[in-house]
Structures are given as C-alpha cells and as structure tokens.
Design a protein around this nucleic acid. Structure first.
Length: 125
DNA sequence: CTTCTGACA
DNA sequence: TGTCAGGA
C-alpha cells in the first residue's frame, strides 16, 4: 500500500506536460511555486519536474481559485490544514472535527476574498 | 525545440 | 497574468 504513494511522488513530468494536464499557463505554475503552494523537484538542468501528487495539488489550487479564493486565502487553507494535521498527532481530533474546522475556515476566507474582489470591480479596477 | 529567470510599453 | 529578452 506504499508502492503507489511512492510512484505518485516521483517527479517525472516537465512543465509542458503539467500545462496540458492542468490547463494552467507556465506563468501561473511558476507563480504558485513562488507562493510556496507547489514546489517541484529540479532535474540536472534546473528544469522543474512534477509528480502526480503535484498535479493533484495544482488542480486543487486551480479549483480554489475558480471558487473565488486568492493566494492569501489558499495559503490560509493549507496553513490551517497543516496545523490540524500536526495537532491531530499530539492530541486526537476526529476526522469530522477536522473537516468542520476546515469548512468553517473555507467559508470565512471565501467570503472575504469574494467581497474584496467585488469591491475592486465596483470601483472600476 | 523547451524551459529558466527577471522585468515591465 | 501576459509577454519579451537572453541564455542554457
């Protein structure tokens, strides 16, 4: 049950393939890396190499963006998710607890970013 | 030909 | 975010 996870973690896809698989531009993919959302491996020639897990993460980020979240919002989601994951090792929250916390956080952040994006549009920006 | 970094009419 | 430069 570890074999698949290992293979899914192997970085074997160049950015060009990732572009086709995620429908994101190279600019966006590199930008998300700057934002520390998806850090790909590098090959001998300094080329970015992505794994299947990276693809999933990128698609996930793409979905959040489509739902109206901004970089700050997405970072908060993952920060929260990581915090819960670590807390879950020391203490023991149920999966339901974690999901509720993540859901509440998502709603809060989602509302804020949408609000600010709308205000920008209303101000002609 | 493909990707990389840095920069901005 | 797009896009161009200049190099690998």
């Amino acid at each position: 049950m570890k074999e698949k996870e290992l293979r899914r973690s192997l970085a074997v896809l160049p950015i060009g393939t990732v572009m086709k698989l995620t429908d994101l531009t190279a600019r966006q993919i590199r930008y998300y890396e700057e934002q520390e959302l998806v850090i790909p491996a590098r090959n001998e020639g300094n080329r970015r190499m992505y794994s299947l897990n990276d693809i999933d993460k990128l698609l996930e980020v793409k979905d959040y963006l489509a739902e109206g979240l901004n970089m700050a919002g997405i970072k908060r989601i993952y920060a929260k998710k990581l915090a819960e994951k670590q807390a879950k090792q020391g203490k023991s929250l149920t999966d339901a607890d974690v999901r509720k916390i993540l859901h509440d956080e998502f709603i809060a952040v989602s509302g804020l970013s949408k609000q600010s994006q709308f205000s920008f549009r209303n101000n002609g920006l």
